[in-house]
Every structure is written in C-alpha cells, then in structure tokens.
C-alpha cells in the first residue's frame, strides 16, 4: 500500500488525536454519552488509520502487544472490577463500589470506571484484530 508522503509523515502525529479523543470519551462516559465502547472504537479507528498510512507492521509495533493480548488484558480488567464486589461476601458479583477521594474537589471513583477501561481495551483488541485480519487478506 503506497500512502502519500504527507500522510506517512503526519501519521504518528495524527495517531495522538484519536487517542486523546478516545480517552476523553472513555472518561466522559461517567455521566454523559460516551464510555468504553465508543472510546475503544475511536482508538481503534486511529490505529487502523495508522495502519493504512504506515502499514500493518508499524501499527502492530505501535501497539506493543498482539491485539489478542489487549483483548485479554481488557477482559481481565473488566472481570477484576467485579471481583471487588466480594469485599462484602454476601453481595452479588459486580456490585458497585465507590470511593470519593477529596483532592480539592470530590472525585467520584467507582468500579464502573474500571469496568469501562476493560471494555475500552477489549474493544481496541477485538476491532484491530478483525480489521488487520481483513486487510491482511487483501494484501496477502
């Protein structure tokens, strides 16, 4: 795949924009539209764009771990958020727990956020794995 010079040079810069937006969406999901799934989609769109401009190998290198591993880490994170529920042994799995640290403003942190981060990573892993499999077919 021959991408234009401008695209190839600007690709690493352009990778950061969707990444930042995706993290913003992930955190915004707390109380407004957004969340792990949408965030993950935006992030994987960024990675796919990177793969188009710089090639799949480069995108895989930028991800450090194989897509399946990201998927696994995400699943474990989401699972772990549910395990915290058993701090109270009578509670059902996935029962919410909240923590309100007071750093000048009250910052509400909950296990739901951990769950969402897990979703975010799982989505990135799944989407990139699928798209790379498709693109690999095209070129190979």
């Amino acid at each position: 795949m021959d991408a234009s010079l401008i695209l190839r040079v600007s690709a690493p810069l352009l990778l950061w924009v969707p990444m930042a937006v995706s993290v913003y969406l992930l955190i915004r999901g707390h109380n407004a539209p957004g969340g792990g799934f949408v965030g993950g989609l935006v992030a994987s769109a960024g990675l796919v764009f990177y793969a188009i401009s710089r090639g799949q190998e480069a995108a895989l290198r930028a991800m450090r771990l194989p897509p399946a591993s990201w998927c696994g880490i995400g699943l474990l994170t989401a699972l772990g958020s549910g395990l915290l529920a058993w701090l109270d042994p009578s509670a059902g799995y996935l029962t919410h727990r909240w923590w309100f640290p007071d750093i000048s403003v009250t910052l509400p942190l909950g296990t739901a956020l951990v769950f969402d981060i897990g979703v975010y990573l799982t989505v990135i892993g799944t989407i990139t794995a699928m798209v790379f499999a498709l693109v690999g077919e095209e070129t190979g």
């Binding site: 194989p66 399946a68 998927c71 696994g72 699943l75 474990l76």
Partner: peptide
C-alpha cells in the same frame, strides 16, 4: 454460594483472557 454460582462463568472468562494474553 454466590461465588460458586458465578465461577462457571468467571473461570472460562479468566481462562479466555489469560490465554489470549499469552497469544504468542
């Protein structure tokens, strides 16, 4: 009982995640 009830789902889920992480 709650733990036993959830574990047939949790164990394969953890196994899926861990084996996926060990992809290579």
């Amino acid at each position: 009982r709650q733990f036993l009830l959830a574990s047939p789902i949790l164990i394969p889920l953890v196994a899926t995640a861990v084996t996926a992480m060990l992809w290579s």
